[in-house]
């Protein structure tokens, strides 16, 4: 019964998306433990083999199992997405809330910095970071994390301004609630749903940006089984007929991004941050 209600609330699109995402998560978590092949072990006797029972996704130019690499790549994409979105959102929230609460020059300085960050596409930002930190997954992660910050900061600031203008904040001030308590008990809880929506909708683009960096050779380095880098590795073999090396990570990427976007849209609809306060005119 509860299941059926949940299904109705979320709708079939989100259901399919959840299944797709679930499959990738399962592949990322369970496969490396269960699958006999390893993502980096080479086998010179079995290079560029097409999909078969032993290698369902085939092997690449040095005889590595593409399925094992696919799973390891899923792990990397999911994890980096999670890290970048979490850290980026938290940092954005701190910046946005600080700016919204303190106003004045602090607000000005912080938001101008955010504007500058926002002026660069995620990829360019990440490329700039690689100049400083060297190419690699670490700088790619830092870069995309940075790209998440201003978006969240802006929303968090606007929301903080809206919330602090609410009478309930004045009421809390009037009872003499310490400022930190006020933020912790009244501002942050109202921000949270919005931030979750922001974070989930940023997830897809973050994952994509990391893959794009890998594709350009600025992200994951050889022989890290990162999806973007795997697609690059598979480009030429694909032209030569070995379609499986690039196709599977490409499909994985597509599934992951589409599914997270569909889910984040649903989460947005279900967690409308106005929901809680929108009832103010319905005098139940």
């Amino acid at each position: 019964m509860a299941l059926r209600r949940t299904w109705q609330r979320w709708g079939p699109g989100a259901g399919i998306a959840a299944v797709g995402l679930g499959l990738i998560v399962v592949a990322a978590v369970a496969l490396p433990l269960l699958w006999p092949w390893n993502a980096t072990a080479t086998d010179f006797a079995a290079t560029m083999r097409g999909p078969s029972w032993t290698h369902p996704m085939g092997t690449d130019g040095v005889g590595r199992d593409v399925l094992a690499r696919f799973a390891a790549g899923a792990r990397i994409s999911l994890l980096i997405g999670l890290v970048a979105v979490t850290i980026g959102s938290l940092a954005g929230m701190v910046v946005g809330v600080t700016a919204g609460l303190l106003r004045g020059w602090v607000d000005e300085v912080l938001m101008r910095i955010m504007d500058v960050l926002m002026a660069f596409p995620a990829l360019l930002l990440a490329m700039a970071v690689t100049v400083g930190l060297g190419t690699g997954l670490r700088s790619a992660t830092v870069g995309v994390t940075l790209s998440v910050v201003p978006w969240v900061a802006r929303v968090a600031r606007a929301e903080t301004l809206r919330i602090t203008a609410l009478p309930l904040i004045e009421a809390s001030r009037a009872i003499g609630l310490p400022r930190l308590d006020l933020v912790r008990k009244h501002v942050l809880p109202h921000l949270l749903p919005l931030l979750i929506i922001q974070a989930t909708s940023a997830y897809g683009s973050v994952v994509l940006a990391v893959a794009a960096l890998g594709f350009l050779g600025l992200g994951a380095q050889v022989p890290t089984p990162e999806w973007g880098a795997m697609i690059t590795e598979g480009m030429e073999p694909a032209l030569a007929g070995a379609w499986w090396v690039a196709l599977f990570p490409g499909l994985g990427m597509l599934t992951l991004v589409v599914c997270t976007n569909v889910l984040s849209d649903r989460i947005r609809d279900l967690m409308d941050p106005r929901g809680a306060l929108a009832g103010r005119r319905s005098r139940g």
């Binding site: 596409p121 990829l123 683009s205 994509l208 794009a212």
Partner: peptide, 9 residues
Amino acid sequence: LLAATLAMT
């Protein structure tokens, strides 16, 4: 952001 990323790619 997503659009920009896609466009860049």
